[in-house]
Design a protein around this nucleic acid. Structure first.
Length: 486
RNA sequence: CGGGGUGUAGCGUAGUCCGGUUAGCGCACCUGCUUUGGGAGCAGGGGGUCGCAGGUUCAAAUCCUGCCACCCCGACCA
């Protein structure tokens, strides 16, 4: 474990250092792939379990669809094809020939129809939905799957953009447009809750512009988050798909009054990218700060026991503290190996554990423990009979992580009315910039070209004709937020 | 696919220009002892086809030729 790069020195180097040194993940042998190590996977699992419960509680069922998708499926929805064509892994053969220890592809094993490794599952799911939906009684149909997907990316970064990633993708079918839109927004709200209450990450939520919308969607809502370098990260999306996939896969249902009607769809997902957001929202120069609710270890206990004095009594004291915490469902770890105390302090700070408890002879004699918070480095003594207050401290940490991140985002979000102010603001510093926009692709593209900032989402529609687009001067259609994005 | 760069132990590197001991060092790792309140100390130890292939030479990490891989910058993106 080496010292990590400072955020102010090189933010993206800091990001990589933290991931590798905190043992979250490592690089896989194929370019762009990532191995999620046990500590990182435990974190992901905690996030997943929180979200999974919310998905189940809101009436969805988990299922699993195949990794392999016939190429022809992907061709069925025109915009969807366009969106994904350039980043698909394709299976073309089924056999290898082994010769002198080296392997070559058997040309005779070429597949009749090439198979796509799913970049997302709309097509295969709607293929199945056609079989399952015939009557209004079959609706709504609401499934979710936890899966891996593959997108052949040019530039990859651990957690943020990898060739293969883990995610959850929900797919629903509804009898009416209104119901599908309601579902789309329900999910947005679930994601907002997940981010705010579990990940302690404040969000900015709105619709995507034409250019940023999901390929095949009529409307995309996105959860935008601000990283510590003030760049935006799209951390979740929920799509209203209209009848695009229903009609592409010829899915219809019979209504109560015996009419044949189209089916409306939604899809929505969050991925291991969330872990990247978590790192970049809360982390500091010492490393990660993991919110208690999802932390693999909430409290690390570090015994400091010089000269083996009163060895047995000391050990049972440490054990008593641990049992007290475990009894309150606190996830603990006792780090009693031979590393020096200072080394352990740094190691667990790097790994982002919310609370460190130090127990030495002093604490042992006073029947207390030293509690140190990762979020603000405050230390306090807690008597052993007040150990049940630790969960309250954990909740405080959870809240203060959110509040800090919220303050940071608010402090770095501004509103401008002229393009001169817009470029001026961006050249000084990254910011989230709220501004009026005329709603055209052309304006969006020109602003992107000139400033590298893109429209992250549309916050609201503009009703007041005196509000003008900051770039074209035309009457504004929307109030949007611009930012440089990951 | 265009421009630039780099390949020496798990990681970081010295040596390459100007060929010549057993390829050196730091971190990490292993063993033992001593240690433990903010990245412990001492002693010992293991680990290298110097990216690959060919060539020049008495002799190649070093010179020549070809190939490969990876990284950075641009066009694509959750």
């Amino acid at each position: 474990m080496a010292k990590i790069t400072k955020q102010s020195e090189n933010f993206s180097k800091w990001y990589t250092d933290v991931i590798l040194d905190a043992d979250l993940a490592d690089y896989g042998p194929v370019k762009g792939t990532m191995v999620v190590k046990p500590y990182g996977f435990s974190l992901w699992t905690n996030i997943r379990n929180s979200l999974n419960q919310m998905i189940i509680d809101s009436g969805h069922e988990n299922a699993y669809f195949p990794l392999f998708i016939p190429k022809s499926f992907l061709e069925k929805e025109a915009k969807h094809v366009e969106g994904f064509a350039k980043e698909c892994a394709v299976v073309t053969h089924s056999k290898l020939i082994s010769e002198d220890g080296s392997l070559t592809v058997d040309p005779d094993s070429r597949l009749e129809e090439e198979i796509i490794v799913r970049p997302t599952s709309e097509t295969i799911i709607w293929h199945m939905f056609k079989k399952w939906i015939t009557s209004y009684r079959d609706l709504p149909l609401k499934v979710n799957q936890w899966a891996n997907v593959v997108r052949w990316e040019m530039r990859t970064r651990l957690f943020l953009r990898t060739s293969e990633f883990l995610w959850q993708e929900g797919h629903t079918a509804h009898a009416t447009k209104e119901e599908a839109m309601e579902e789309t927004l329900l999910i947005v709200d679930i994601y907002r809750k997940l981010f705010e209450e579990h990940l302690a990450i404040p969000t900015m939520i709105g619709r995507k512009s034409n250019l940023e919308r999901f390929a095949g969607a009529d409307e995309t809502f996105s959860i935008e988050t601000m990283m510590r370098d003030k760049k935006a990260l799209q951390a979740g999306t929920s799509h209203y798909l209209g009848t695009n996939f229903g009609s592409a896969f010829d899915v219809k249902f019979q209504s109560k009054d015996n009419k044949e009607l189209p089916v409306y769809a939604t899809s929505w997902g969050v991925s291991t990218r969330m872990v990247g957001a978590l790192i970049m929202v809360h982390g500091d120069d010492k490393g990660l700060k993991i919110p208690p609710k999802i932390a693999p270890t909430q409290v690390v206990i570090i015994p400091i026991n010089p000269k083996n004095q009163k060895q047995e009594e000391f050990t049972s004291f440490v054990d008593r503290v641990n049992q007290g915490l475990v009894g309150q469902n606190v996830r603990t770890f006792i780090d009693d190996n031979n590393e020096s105390p200072g080394f352990k302090f740094n190691k667990w700070e790097l790994k982002g554990v919310p609370i460190r408890i130090e127990i030495g002879l002093k604490e042992f004699e006073n029947m207390e423990v030293t509690v140190c918070r990762r979020d603000n480095s405050e230390k306090q003594q807690v008597p052993i009979d007040k150990i049940d207050e630790i969960p309250i401290i954990l909740q405080n940490i959870q809240d203060s992580l959110f509040n800090d991140a919220k303050t940071f985002m608010d402090d770095n979000t501004c509103t401008v009315n002229t393009f001169a102010d817009f470029t001026e603001t961006l050249s000084n510093d990254n910011q989230f910039i709220k501004a009026y926009w005329d709603g055209t692709d052309d304006t969006e593209l020109q602003i992107k070209e000139k400033t590298k900032a893109t429209i992250r989402c549309i916050l609201e529609d503009n009703e007041d004709s005196s509000n003008k687009c900051i770039f074209s001067g035309q009457t504004a259609k929307h109030l949007v937020v611009f930012a440089k994005a990951y």
